[in-house]
Write a protein that binds this DNA or RNA. Structure first.
Lengths: 227, 227
DNA sequence: GTAGGGATTTGAACGCGTTAAAATCTTCCA
DNA sequence: TGGAAGATTTTAACGCGTTCAAATCCCTAC
């Protein structure tokens, strides 16, 4: 209420915009609080008043980013288990790859920092829930074995997806490698629990991805320069 | 040659011992270079001369640690694909869980820092090679489908294992949860590519782990204490 | 035994994230 | 319009990782 709050919100927005630009330009480590204060025309202590610290600066971004991912995946309500599982991954990819320089920093910070634990936990759980729903629907449709506990498998699928993201953020694989690794991993975890037509689809997908990963260039194996 | 090298090696050893103790006591962030210098009776710049920085301090440890893991897994030369794959994970676990406080810090640093990229790459590749060998043997024995590209699947299995380690290091799961997640993930990725008896074994193992994870206590969902 | 050269130490400094105190400005109410 | 309450700014400082230059020590070689 009133101009106090309004101006505070304006300052917050100004800081976030500047932070996003500076991080994209210099990386998270390259961003200094003093520079950020100057760029967003506030003082350094104000940064701490409004956000609480350098890492906390990004928590708002993180929450909205992951919320967008989760929301995006809810589109994928049609198709087989495989289609939907892969669509969930793709929905995540799209948002990340849109601003790679920034996303890389965000991901590494998000997945490794202890201060982001709560947001991470919440995001992971909604992501896993999403995937678990897909598995449950698959069970109803007879595509997925009945004995599988959806949420547990979903968590492990998301775990794999997380590490693929980390590999990408660390620069160990490029975008194509990230997509391939994700698809392959999802398929590998689905292959054993699917049946009939769905299983055949997974096999096909896996073999296709596999041939891409072997025949194409191999950034993972080439970079062993000794150490 | 001579006493120069000897004394240098002695200083290095002294520093590493002190670092291990201090990290186990205070955590990686709690360790200050000034304190470490005092504890190991050298000067601060010497730390930088001998190692190059705070993170580099641990690279030697990391290399030997992972070398030990890889060496330990080479014991597991008998049994089915499943037995050997799980034995590889257990061998890794044993070393990590022996000194949890220290390992946690080491893992987080190792798996997230960009300065450890080269060691990480090399370790990951030897680990994946090890698992790939198991898969190849399984293919010869008819336990694993022939169309599977062992190294590619092995890399994804190791990727999953890495994230399970991260989850443990972040304190999101306890030791039992880590073991369960690892076993479940390995099995999930093996289930689809195994056949006959081996596949039945994987199914059995998965169902067993799964029942542990659902019926027992669930540290993953309970630990949301907020803040 | 003694000079010389190399590494270590000393002492200081830099930039960083972070925080505290008083000074200043903006906003709201009478 | 004037004053009170609040947040922001100023200014300074702390501890941290890191690095520099000169002084010092230890080892090697004559």
């Amino acid at each position: 209420m009133g101009l106090f709050e309004e101006h505070k919100a304006e300052r917050r927005a100004r800081i976030l915009v500047a932070a996003r630009e500076l991080i994209a330009e210099l990386g998270y480590d390259g961003l200094t609080m003093r520079d950020l204060a100057k760029a967003s025309r506030v003082s350094v202590p104000t940064l701490y008043n409004l956000f609480g610290g350098k890492q906390a600066l990004l928590l708002g971004e993180l929450e909205s980013t992951f919320a967008a991912v989760v929301a995006g995946t809810e589109q994928a309500r049609t198709g087989s288990v495989v289609d939907r599982a892969l669509a969930i991954c793709e929905a995540g990819n799209a948002d990340l790859l849109a601003a790679p320089r920034y996303s890389r920093e965000l991901i590494l910070l998000f997945l490794t920092s202890s201060e982001t634990a709560e947001v991470r936990r919440a995001s992971a759980e909604s992501y896993a829930e999403l995937m678990a729903d897909v598995l449950r629907d698959g069970q109803k449709a007879g595509e997925v074995q009945a004995w599988v506990e959806p949420l547990i498998l979903a968590r492990r699928m998301f775990a794999h997806y997380q590490l693929a993201m980390i590999e990408w953020a660390r620069g160990e694989v490029d975008t194509d490698g990230f997509r391939a690794a994700t698809r392959f991993g999802m398929c590998a975890m689905l292959l054993g629990v699917t049946r009939g037509k769905a299983q055949r689809q997974v096999t096909q997908e896996m073999q296709a991805v596999q041939s891409t990963m072997t025949s194409g260039r191999r950034p993972k194996t080439r970079a062993r320069k000794g150490g």
